[in-house]
Design a binder for these strands. Structure first.
Lengths: 203, 203
DNA sequence: TTAATTTCGTAATGGTTATTACGATAACGA
DNA sequence: TCGTTATCGTAATAACCATTACGAAATTAA
């Protein structure tokens, strides 16, 4: 019973997500969020909790609705295709929306006041999970002979994630999708392929 | 004439620089800055102007005192050594101070409220200048036969800067210098060298 | 229709923000 | 020693921040 909600919760969360994506956790004021959601302040609070809880739900939605290509790419048959997919899709996502370029996982909270530490940590953890899943996939590739035995999968995964994070910064700086794709190609051009050519591996 | 200053201006600027490095432009409150500098609020204002002016001076100092290796690296004889120097020195700088890992040029202001837009732009411009100077150096390398004629210097410079920016993020995430150096090696392993082996160039 | 329950919008709360007014203090030239 | 000038620290200002008290409105069960 009781009065029924007059706004769409999912739609409000998406609006908040976009604001956080653009301004980051601390840069987004509750006024920004309520205006974007078209909802009064207490309504947002009752639906999502406080600002940090709202951000965490927005982050979860981001991973589900925007970063879904990442776990999908891990299913590619070869490690090279996995990485190529991830790089290409990221270049596209980071430049897709002119009003919020880059990546919420990066721009959400890189630096900030001490109050934002929990949120910063949440983002770090999320990034670490992504990197670990990539690392696991590369380990599998090594077992399958898709990567040379000398390959250091942790370092390779760190390299790919580094390029991803850098691309998010460059996207925010105004770089075009084409330029980011050129960066991705360059990053991929040294990818070690198969046991037959164990060249250029790290370590 | 008049009363003489009781604090060292350069020392106060350095203290402010460290706070901005750690918390970013908006994350650093004036209380943080004055406490770090050991100086009362009006003293900071009279010495540097408002918060934005203080940040800009801190940024200038950062480029002079911390990023001085960058223009220095451009003097290396080959493009490969140039890039290797930049990558290695950045990995070291980004992990040198445990209390402020990463790079002020990145963490200073990536995302934030609309008020911080001028500062964000200043950082973008600073990054663009660095990238342009690297691009120029690579063009020279191409003319000297140090890079294949098919090399796209703008894309290569963008790639190097992307890795740098990503390394700054990873450093803040807690990555060790060793891991960042492995990332740097991986990035360098695809570097095109000389006209004799025009492989792996972009475009 | 009445009672119970939930959401609604208005408007307030307490804390923090960047920025200064102001009187006291100190240094220098005359 | 006096007057000028610059810096000092205290304490105030006005705007914004996240969060919520509260009463009106609306929905359902009885």
């Amino acid at each position: 019973m009781g009065r029924k909600r007059e706004f769409d919760v999912d739609q409000a969360l998406e609006a908040a997500l976009c604001v956080f994506w653009r301004k980051g956790y601390e840069g987004a004021s509750y006024t920004d969020l309520t205006q974007a959601a078209g909802v009064e302040r207490p309504a947002l609070y009752s639906a999502f909790g406080n600002k940090e809880a709202l951000f965490r739900q927005a982050l979860a939605r981001y991973y589900e609705h925007y970063l879904d290509y990442f776990p999908e790419a891990l299913k590619q048959p070869t490690s090279r295709e996995v990485v190529a997919d991830i790089l290409r899709a990221s270049a596209e996502l980071y430049t897709r929306y002119p009003d919020r370029k880059g990546c919420l996982g990066i721009h959400g909270a890189l630096a900030g006041s001490d109050d934002a530490e929990p949120v910063r940590r949440a983002l770090i953890d999320a990034r670490a999970i992504g990197e670990a899943s990539l690392c696991d996939r590369l380990e599998r590739a090594k077992q399958e002979g898709d990567l040379p035995e000398t390959a250091n999968c942790a370092d390779l995964a760190a390299f790919v994630m580094t390029v991803l994070h850098g691309m998010a910064v460059q996207a925010r700086d105004g770089f075009s999708r084409e330029t980011l794709e050129a960066v991705a190609r360059q990053a991929l051009s040294v990818w070690p392929s198969g046991r037959s050519t164990p060249s250029g591996a790290s370590s």
